[in-house]
Amino acid sequence: MRHWRKLLRVLHRDIGYLAVGLTLIYGISGIAVNHIADWNPNYSIQKTTIVLDSIPKHLGKDEMTTFILQAIGETGNVKNSFRPSPNELEIFVEGNTISVNYDTKTVTQEKFNPRFFIKETNDLHLNKPKGIWTYIADLFAVALMFLALTGLFILKGKNGITGRGAWLTAVGFLIPLIFWYIFYG
């Protein structure tokens, strides 16, 4: 019995060490994507709008693109351009999308930058790499369940699963059960 508990403790400790990095990645990303309604968890986006004095509507797409880029001082690499309607033009520059409205003479710039580290954690959390990462994430999920279950039996006595541990574990189960009841009951 003592050997059995000791083995659990050793496995819990070593697998716990292995899981620290991934737990932090999934935890950080979990908070980030949980609030997706309030912010963009992957990119910081700055939108600015200016109104030009005049826009020479007669210009062709390429000439208009050159005119607008000069007017706003954008020197980035132009990837392409598109006309969503006869009175609108969109210019795609590396890290910047420029929308032009010929009627209102407004030029809106949308500059975006990936959020350092958080985007990378989100990519892993949401399994963007696919392939082998799918299996690593599965292993991590199994490891977390193992840590949860072995954690129940690390201590014995009044702070173990037969005492305080039982109550706290029950509370842990009750939290999702109460929410299920409220939302689906």
């Binding site: 992957n42 990119y43 598109f82 006309r83 795609f92 999308t97 975006f112 990519d123 949401l126």
Partner: peptide, 28 residues
């Protein structure tokens, strides 16, 4: 996706999480 016809585009919708397109693909 912009159409071959001017002022026309078509949405290419994927199930959430199956494909994740980064913002950098705009203009490609």
């Amino acid at each position: 996706i912009a159409s071959d016809k001017e002022f026309q585009k078509l949405r290419f919708k994927v199930d959430d999480g199956v494909i994740i397109f980064p913002m950098e693909v705009k203009g490609k």
